[in-house]
Amino acid sequence: MEMKPIPPEESLIEYPSDFPIKIMGVMHETFAQTIIEVVSIHDPTFHAGKVDMRPSTKGTYLALTVTVRAVSREQLDNLYRELSSHPMVKIVL
């Protein structure tokens, strides 16, 4: 299903702006680096310093909060789509 574009005056986000996204997945040695690579495709200004990592209490999962420079709704939609469909990712918020 194709989403219809939201007119700028109806968007809840002002562009450009810094936009946090939380990504959760199973703890794995390459999870954080893999997510950084995916995010960097959609935000060329993104770097590892914009990542906050929090392991779950038992160390089974890793939650990453990445702060991207959002420049358009299309950019965010594409990023959410790619993250949500990635096999290492369980949840994107």
Results as ranks from 00 to 15, higher is better:
residue 1 M to N: 15
residue 40 S to Y: 01
residue 74 E to N: 14
residue 74 E to L: 12
residue 44 P to D: 10
residue 10 E to R: 12
residue 81 R to G: 15
residue 28 H to W: 03
residue 52 D to M: 08
residue 86 H to Y: 10
residue 4 K to Y: 07
residue 45 T to W: 14
residue 45 T to M: 08
residue 47 H to W: 00
residue 61 Y to N: 04
residue 12 L to T: 12
residue 32 A to H: 07
residue 30 T to P: 08
residue 23 I to H: 01
residue 28 H to C: 05
residue 73 R to G: 01
residue 78 N to Q: 12
residue 84 S to E: 12
residue 59 G to Q: 09
residue 39 V to E: 02
residue 75 Q to M: 09
residue 4 K to W: 13
residue 14 E to K: 15
residue 16 P to F: 05
residue 10 E to I: 09
residue 60 T to C: 00
residue 2 E to W: 14
residue 12 L to I: 13
residue 58 K to E: 14
residue 80 Y to A: 01
residue 81 R to W: 10
residue 15 Y to S: 04
residue 9 E to T: 04
residue 33 Q to A: 13
residue 57 T to D: 11
residue 12 L to G: 08
residue 31 F to Y: 06
residue 6 I to M: 09
residue 42 H to N: 02
residue 15 Y to T: 08
residue 38 V to K: 01
residue 7 P to F: 15
residue 86 H to V: 05
residue 88 M to G: 02
residue 89 V to R: 10
residue 43 D to A: 06
residue 13 I to T: 15
residue 80 Y to S: 04
residue 4 K to A: 11
residue 60 T to P: 07
residue 8 P to T: 06
residue 36 I to Q: 02
residue 62 L to A: 11
residue 18 D to V: 09
residue 42 H to I: 03
residue 28 H to G: 06
residue 78 N to W: 06
residue 58 K to I: 14
residue 27 M to A: 08
residue 78 N to F: 07
residue 64 L to I: 04
residue 18 D to F: 11
residue 65 T to P: 10
residue 53 M to T: 14
residue 27 M to H: 14
residue 82 E to N: 07
residue 41 I to C: 04
residue 91 I to D: 08
residue 80 Y to L: 09
residue 50 K to T: 02
residue 86 H to P: 03
residue 66 V to Y: 08
residue 91 I to W: 03
residue 87 P to I: 07
residue 17 S to K: 07
residue 21 I to H: 04
residue 69 R to S: 11
residue 27 M to T: 09
residue 62 L to P: 03
residue 19 F to L: 14
residue 90 K to M: 13
residue 6 I to Q: 08
residue 15 Y to N: 04
residue 56 S to A: 04
residue 63 A to N: 15
residue 67 T to P: 05
residue 17 S to R: 10
residue 51 V to Q: 06
residue 66 V to D: 01
